[in-house]
Amino acid sequence: MSVLDTVADRLVVPGYSKWGYRLRKGSWSALEPGALNGARAVVTGAGSGIGKATALGLARLGAEVVLAVRDERKGEAARAEIVAAVPEAVVQIGLCDVSSPESVRRFAAEIDRLDVLVHNAGVLPQERKVTAEGHELTFATHVLGPLLLTDLLRPLLAASDDPRVVFVSSGGMYTQRLRGDDPEYREGTYRGATAYARTKRMQVALVPLLAERYAADGIAVHGMHPGWADTPGVAGSLPGFHKLTGAFLRTSEEGADTIVWLAATSPAPRTGQFWHDRRERPTHLLPTTGEKPEDVVAFWQYCTSAAGVLP
């Protein structure tokens, strides 16, 4: 299975599709029922798609879940679905626009206990947009906001017996190198899909940096990609891709499986790694995407300054 798994992963289509998931799941052990009893989890972008599926999976394992959403109505609808599926679930809604530092700070101030933090919120604008603070929107949503939110919640995570942070990246990040020289995508012709993939690469670069930053607090930091899942975000932002790959796509629940596993499996997976379908994966597949130390330094310095986080 290990060799077949690796081959499927490198060939992309077999590994990222529903077939890759179904090929692999037969060798997995079920998560312990009640594995997250007493734990509290925050899931950003939990109003639909993989975020909602993640929240449902965590609730099924006993976690109290906070749905961090921009749209309260979508949050209420997601909450109703989760409670209908898991009547005993404790599900709360918190308003949080991850691209807005003010909204992130306000949301973080409302959280008083935390064990699991899942960074799932995502955007894919077709044209370059900037936030009120002047940051490119995908960069603000995928990188600056999660960095700020994690740092604000660090004391609560450090107080947990088994704290875990999960960044939901994308397989598209394999096509991009870390752009420490142009993180805001100011140079060249802007393409939404490229901006998305670049910032997903940045999330993967953040994982080992934050794992080291929080090591003394015992906070595990993980990165993962869910494969190709049939979500409202994919259908709305990438209609051509969705039409072409529709027969191959995973369900949201299949895409969310590794997120839930990273949050709940015992013993805890190794911190600072990148995962897909419950297995560590390489962070680079192309020789052109390799990172130089100076790229990482420049990226980290820019991010901490832009997010208002001490380096």
Results as ranks from 00 to 15, higher is better:
V143C: 04
L285M: 12
V297N: 00
I219S: 11
G145E: 02
G51L: 08
S252C: 12
P14N: 07
R79H: 11
L210P: 11
Y302P: 00
P101C: 09
A8P: 07
H222N: 15
L61F: 11
G26L: 12
L36S: 03
A55I: 10
G227N: 09
G233L: 00
E133L: 05
W300E: 04
A193V: 15
P232K: 08
T199P: 04
G272S: 13
L67N: 08
L206M: 08
R278E: 14
A41L: 03
A215N: 05
R106S: 15
V7H: 08
R128F: 12
P87Q: 06
G94Q: 14
E64Q: 14
A193E: 09
S160T: 15
L152M: 11
V168Q: 01
G38E: 09
E81K: 04
E212W: 01
R213F: 04
R186P: 00
G255E: 11
L262F: 12
Q273G: 06
A41C: 07
E127L: 00
D5E: 13
A63F: 04
A108P: 12
P232M: 10
Q273K: 13
E76D: 14
V66M: 11
P232D: 08
P282F: 12
A140E: 15
Y21G: 02
A35V: 05
H135E: 09
T199K: 11
A53I: 07
R177T: 10
C96F: 04
L286Y: 15
R70M: 01
C96H: 05
V296I: 15
T265G: 04
A85F: 08
W28V: 10
P155F: 00
L148H: 05
E254D: 05
L238K: 03
G246M: 07
K74I: 00
T6K: 13
I219C: 10
E253Q: 15
P208A: 03
Q92K: 04
S170Q: 12
V104Y: 02
G180P: 07
R270E: 15
E133R: 13
L157R: 12
V43I: 09
A263L: 08
V42K: 03
V43D: 03
I82Y: 02
H142W: 03
R179L: 02
P311Q: 10
A158R: 09
V98F: 00
W300R: 08
G171E: 13
G47D: 12
R60I: 13
G236F: 10
L36W: 04
G218W: 14
T150H: 01
P14C: 05
D112Q: 14
S252Q: 03
L23N: 01
T6Y: 13
Q273W: 05
V143P: 03
A307K: 07
R198T: 02
L4I: 13
S305K: 02
W275A: 02
A46Y: 04
P269N: 10
V168P: 00
G20T: 10
E133C: 07
F274M: 09
P14V: 00
G223P: 01
R22V: 08
H119M: 11
T189Y: 05
G218L: 14
I259S: 07
T199V: 05
G188S: 15
A8I: 04
A121Q: 07
L61T: 04
G75N: 07
P163A: 13
T304D: 06
D112M: 05
A89P: 02
V166F: 08
P125A: 14
V42Y: 03
G47E: 12
V66W: 09
V43N: 06
L152T: 09
D182N: 14
